[in-house]
Computed example of a mutant assay.
Amino acid sequence: MRRKDFGAMACPVARSLERVGEWWSILILRDALAGITRFDGFQASLGIAPNMLTRRLNGLIESGLLEKRPYSDHPKRFDYLLTERGRDFRPVLQALLTWGNRHFAPEGASIIILNGETGTAAEPILVDRVSGRPLSDPVFRNAPGPAATAAISQRYAAAAETSA
């Protein structure tokens, strides 16, 4: 059974999931953001089969999240380095970490986000750059953007009617 292709959908969430929605891909990005760059490093960290790791690395390269650079010719070996697009995934990963600590860690946080200057734990929230208000404030809602399809506009119009 073939899975649905989200890449052609107009929704930015669906398009993002097409690139990183597979759990191995997110964990590879987590490790890359932590400084792992080599195949054997990813494999040791994740315990993933080599053929699966190769597929996921290639997918992240094709999606523009990683780039592959040789570091040895004999034998041929590569570093897998984050691109700007890959580095931009950091706040998404931090949001997942925060959410996971809050809702799925009854034993307590196993990983925290630390301020390197003060040594204190950060308390992450998503904030609107313009107003400085947290996006969890009820004043914020999703709405169709300039490139919205008719289906997206209809979906949000229907949601607005039911919440009014």
Rank of each mutant, 00 (worst) to 15 (best):
R3F: 12
T37R: 12
S16R: 10
G86Y: 00
E62N: 09
I111W: 06
F104I: 03
G41V: 03
I61S: 00
W23Q: 12
Y71A: 05
R2Y: 11
C11I: 01
G64P: 11
F78V: 01
V13D: 02
T37A: 07
R85D: 02
D128E: 15
D5F: 14
E22S: 08
L114F: 12
R102K: 06
K68V: 09
D73M: 14
G7L: 15
R141S: 14
L114P: 05
Y80W: 03
T83Y: 10
G100M: 12
K4N: 02
R129W: 04
T98F: 04
P146H: 07
E22N: 14
L82R: 01
A44N: 10
A150H: 06
D31V: 10
Y156I: 00
P124E: 00
A109G: 13
D79T: 10
T162R: 15
A8F: 12
S16K: 05
I36D: 00
P144A: 03
L17S: 07
L46E: 02
F39R: 01
L135S: 12
M9W: 04
F140M: 03
D128H: 09
G41L: 05
A49L: 04
N101D: 05
R15E: 00
I112H: 09
W99F: 15
R15Q: 15
P50N: 08
A95N: 07
R87W: 00
L53Q: 05
D40K: 12
P146F: 07
S25I: 08
I152F: 01
N142T: 13
L53H: 01
Q43N: 05
A44M: 10
W99G: 01
A121H: 15
L81D: 03
R19K: 15
D128G: 14
L33T: 15
R30T: 14
H74T: 14
D5V: 13
S16E: 03
G132T: 09
I26C: 08
V20A: 05
A157Q: 08
K4T: 08
G145E: 00
P91R: 01
P146W: 08
